[in-house]
Simulated scan of single mutants.
Amino acid sequence: MTYIEALILAIIEGVTEFLPISSTGHMVIASTFMGISNNALTKNFEIVIQLGAIVSVVVLYWRKFFTSFRFYLKLGFAFLPAAVAGFFLKNHIDLLLENIWVVVAALIFGGIILIFTDRWFRHAEGTEEQEISWFQGLRIGCFQCIAMIPGISRAAATIIGGMAVGLNRRTAAEFSFFLAVPTMLGASAKEMMDTYQTIEKHDAAILVFGSFVAFLVAMVAIRTFIGFLKQHGFKWFGYYRIVFGIAIAFIAFLRNL
């Protein structure tokens, strides 16, 4: 992997991680078209650079993370379903990550869902901060498991899950950001434990570079997303997913991927 390829993937991660358009799906597609999808470093890179995105959440919402131990307990409780599912389904998930057609189908299906999301959850118009119960957090964590299918989008699954349990858009989106921290930290730590012995000096530099770029881009993306969501809702993300999915399917068909 070159630094240019790392830069492209890190920007994609930073922009898409907290938007309901699937960061994993976008990175799988980008790495496939760059011809590096089967590279061992690429697979590590796509998981480890999420650490940069994690840090952006902690920096932007530091008061949440450094003022309440109860907050950590709730996040840990909400993370449990994904931790259990990830432990038992990791091999199956890895196989899905290699199939671009799974990503295409998930992008289009998720786009259709997002187009109707604002109609289904009209109660979610408020912007006041809400207290999330333990049971609500656990149910959102169950929604997060759906996002193990590449292309579904962890952000989309958890935000819609949040609104389904009674949260408004802002609270659901912010809890989605918070829940990303233990989720991505766990995934990154597991990947590093499995592969650290194979990482060479050049690879380590690429990983650090990518994480830093993802951090900077995610900082901007999070702030922009909250403002856009308040004003326009989810439908434009739905349209984007459908158009993007169809375009990728057409290109993949021409290239016999």
Rank of each mutant, 00 (worst) to 15 (best):
M163A: 10
M163L: 03
A164T: 05
A164K: 02
A164D: 02
V165H: 00
G166Y: 01
G166H: 00
L167R: 03
N168F: 13
R170V: 15
T171E: 12
T171F: 09
A172F: 12
A172R: 07
A172G: 13
A172K: 11
A172L: 10
A173N: 10
A173W: 03
E174P: 04
E174S: 08
F175I: 09
S176T: 15
F177M: 13
F177G: 03
F178P: 03
L179V: 09
A180T: 08
A180L: 08
A180S: 13
P182S: 07
T183D: 10
T183L: 11
M184H: 04
M184V: 03
M184T: 01
L185D: 00
G186Y: 01
A187D: 05
A187L: 08
A187W: 11
S188W: 08
A189F: 07
A189N: 02
A189G: 02
A189T: 12
K190F: 14
K190W: 12
E191I: 01
M192Y: 12
M192C: 14
M193E: 06
M193N: 10
M193L: 14
T195Q: 11
T195Y: 14
Y196K: 09
Y196A: 14
Y196M: 13
Q197C: 07
Q197D: 13
T198A: 15
T198S: 15
K201W: 04
K201P: 00
K201N: 06
K201I: 06
H202I: 14
H202C: 12
H202W: 04
A204G: 07
I206P: 00
I206F: 01
L207Q: 05
L207I: 10
V208W: 08
S211G: 13
F212T: 06
F212I: 15
F212K: 00
V213L: 02
A214V: 12
F215W: 04
F215E: 10
L216I: 15
V217D: 06
A218I: 11
A218M: 11
A218V: 09
M219V: 14
M219A: 12
V220R: 05
V220H: 06
I222G: 07
R223K: 15
I226R: 06
G227N: 14
G227C: 06
F228K: 01
F228V: 04
F228Y: 15
L229R: 12
L229Q: 11
K230Y: 04
K230C: 05
Q231H: 07
Q231M: 07
H232P: 02
H232R: 15
F234H: 13
K235M: 07
K235E: 05
G238F: 02
G238A: 03
Y239I: 13
Y240L: 09
R241Q: 04
I242P: 04
V243C: 11
F244R: 00
F244N: 01
F244I: 04
F244H: 00
G245P: 03
G245T: 08
I246V: 13
I246E: 00
I251Y: 09
I251K: 06
A252K: 06
